[in-house]
Nucleic acid binder design. Structure first.
Lengths: 337, 337
DNA sequence: TTGTAAGCGTTATCAA
DNA sequence: TTGATAACGCTTACAA
């Protein structure tokens, strides 16, 4: 038997009794069904207001079989690249009366499957961002997660919508830009080794011609980029491609401290185009990633999956192309002595 | 009558039938009640696994009268100052099995009451961040929102926990720091006029002695700070206090473009200490705000409110003190000619 | 220790 | 057009 809620709200039954109609009629009025006598409808509405009645969403969800909520599972909420996606998702979903439940795995990739499943059980669907989850965990998880869409990652034959960034295209643009400026030796600040998108970047770099790429272990956060400055300078490159903008900004800070001229002595590029990138000094050249649009597209896919009788799922991965944004942190390669 | 979910999951009834026990027993096993015969418990668990049974959270919520979810209502998810709070809240709540439902009002202050109420109906409680909601809307809203805690704002006699930043103290620290460096005329880049925390800052500035404060209309985002650079330079001040770090960084970007020496010709301070602040050039002097701790404290208050028979609510506002963080963007005032 | 049955607050079917 | 009533999937007081 259930417990009475502490603040006892009016229920649909209270309204029905008070308005001298059945609960069914109250329900019809509240849901705007037209088949109700206008006079009665008006009376019901008045009593509802008088009793300060608000439909219990949980009970509705149980009866309807849907919660009008979708989950968004990410490794770290404080990472700026997930914000735009969340914003896009949240606003698009809101337009159709859906809410977003956010789950942050605090970077514990091993707990992500459990977290995702738990989130899923409270929602109608989930959007999963899990760049470091192992392929096998992911394969095991996905069937239980549906309806779901996978963000920032592609898994073959998963049978669900997948939206990813065309990392390779972004890297190619950056390399082309740098090599056009005369850079021949370029450092790459690696992201987390387990990260899929890092792998994608490295593959694209390996395929680049006309430039030599020096890989340097790094990470995904400010301090990682900051700490890598020494190695970058020692490597004797004339340009650096950072895993992302956050790393690039960390590096930029350290280079300033060391008195290195950017872009005079060293060109620096990032990836993502987070809002800060335009306001650093020098402003950061980077590859803009349409994260907010990804969020919107994710909702669009989910929305289709949630619509009864929706057409067959097209699970061909959608790759969104980054766009090169040239700012002040890149310049001509210094002449070699 | 409810609709069957599309992917028909096993219910507690299926498990009961299959394991040849009652649903009550399955429930007891699933909830770890000790009063079950070990052999039976084991059988139930095995059947649950075999049927891939997962308790329906919505049904649980309805029966228990709680959702194990709390809402977090903010004006704009992309504003970095809300991220740490969300992170603190989300992680603290997760430790006790609670999830966070995020609602973003997209800066529409007039829609916030409705949004907050709707969010509340899906949750057991909400954390409200509404810096620009009118006093009257807020007063009307709060009684319907409880249990709730108010963040970044104080309302007299609201009867709910309130956590706010001691803006005045932070401003005083910044002013003292600047005046100690010889600055006598200081510009203040105003935040949104309707913002409570902006008002608090302005009051503290008005009370400051020994310095003259020039107010300049600005805003809360990068472009606002960027656009204010001209007015700042024209005003002939030697130091600027920006509404927040984001504005300060926007300003810093514009000052670089204009070739203004920071801090040689102009000192700049922000407010918040967002993660980026340490990595700009020069690194930003600012007032650190314990946002993540606020999130944790908010959960602590909420958790108390949600505990049956909790002690009386102490609704005296808690003011968290910022801490001055001196970095490179401030220096001695240039000698006046 | 286990089962029966009522209850949580809705929606929806069907008969009136 | 309206009202009984079953159903959604779970928890729990009470009886056995």
């Amino acid at each position: 038997m259930g417990r009475r809620p502490s603040r006892d709200r009016a229920t649909i039954g209270d309204v029905a009794t008070e308005a001298k109609v059945s609960r069914a009629t109250v329900s019809r009025v509240m849901n705007g069904l037209a088949t109700v006598d206008p006079a009665i409808a008006e009376r019901v509405r008045a009593t509802a207001v008088a009793l300060d009645y608000r439909p219990n969403q949980v009970a509705r969800s149980l009866a309807l079989g849907r919660t009008q909520t979708i989950g968004y599972v990410v490794p770290d909420l404080t990472n700026p690249s997930f914000h735009s996606g969340l914003r896009g998702l949240s606003r698009a979903a809101a337009e159709q009366g859906y809410r977003v439940l956010v789950a942050d795995s605090a970077e514990h990739a091993d707990e992500e499957p459990g977290l995702a499943l738990d989130t899923r059980r409270r929602c109608d669907a989930v959007v999963l961002v899990a760049p470091r989850m192992s392929e096998s965990d992911l394969a095991r998880l996905l069937p239980d997660l549906q309806p779901a869409v996978l963000l920032n990652r592609v898994v073959a034959g998963a049978g669900l919508p997948q939206l990813d960034v065309d990392w390779a295209s972004g890297i190619r643009d950056l390399v082309r830009h740098l090599s056009g400026l005369g850079h021949r030796r370029i450092a790459y600040l690696q992201g987390p080794v387990a990260s899929r998108s890092n792998t994608a970047r490295e593959l694209a770099l390996a395929a680049a011609t006309g430039v030599e790429v020096i890989k340097i272990r790094c990470g995904a956060m400010f301090p990682d980029g900051h700490a890598a400055a020494g190695q970058v300078l020692d490597s004797g490159v004339s340009a650096v491609i950072a895993f992302n903008d956050v790393v690039a900004l960390g590096l930029l800070g350290a280079l300033h401290e060391l008195g290195t001229d950017v872009p005079g002595a060293l060109s620096v590029v990032g990836f993502d185009d987070i809002p800060f990138a335009a306001y650093t000094w020098p402003p950061l050249t980077t590859a803009w990633v349409p994260q907010e649009e990804m969020g919107r597209l994710a909702w669009q896919r989910l929305s289709a999956l949630l619509t009864p009788g929706h057409p067959v799922v097209d699970d061909a991965p959608v790759l969104l192309r980054p766009r090169l944004v040239v700012r002040g942190s890149t310049g001509r390669a210094p002449l070699r002595v």
